[in-house]
Amino acid sequence: MMTYEEMYHAYQKLEAADQIRNLVSNYCFEHNCALQMRYYRNWSKREDIRHEMPWGNTTGHRNLEYNNPWHDVVRHPDDAENMKGGAMFIHSTTTPVIEVADDLKTARAVFLSPGFEGIAAKKMGTWANSKYAYEFLFEDGEWKVWKCRIFPVFRNDYFDDFGAVAEEDMTKKKRVGMEDFHDFFRYGPDVIMPRNEPDPPRPYDTWEPGWNFGTD
């Protein structure tokens, strides 16, 4: 039988897992309507926040915003104009594995994301499937994103077989604030699925480096 202290600890871990799930779902719905600025507020205040995307990795708040310009309709009105022409970003999250550290200071989570997008400039629809790995911090009474890495699976035109079309190389366009790239999986008939894209989290007591993020 649990003591009252153990029950309260269990309650805090369960509540944290629910809040983290909601935080990630919130990103999905805000991304739908390009409220990327609001998304930034879901991040920790720390300057070691890490955003690892298919087109490049960034550290810190300034670089995070520079590296995601086209969703920022406030600072980039040209892109805002473009948003009117059929842009749509739907990145659902499924298959959660959420582990809250026993010390309640950090959490880890992975999700699958069967997504689809409307590409405004091309007037076309695409599938955009990926996987997410997150680390979170409990900061000022709220759970905040600390690190996020996206593992693309495929991004193909609706009428193209995702098994036959190579994943787009998104690393060619240099953007302000990008620091480095990570190699990511591209499906091919001779390719073996990578071991750790992503590695599902296991129960842990307190944060240590080395899980899913190249900078640790």
């Binding site: 959420i98 992975v110 073996i192 699925m193 990578p194 992503p198």
Partner: peptide, 17 residues
Amino acid sequence: KICENLAGSFSYLFSAN
């Protein structure tokens, strides 16, 4: 919550062989 994590872990580990 643990059982949901087990089902999710199955998916990621199975994908990665």
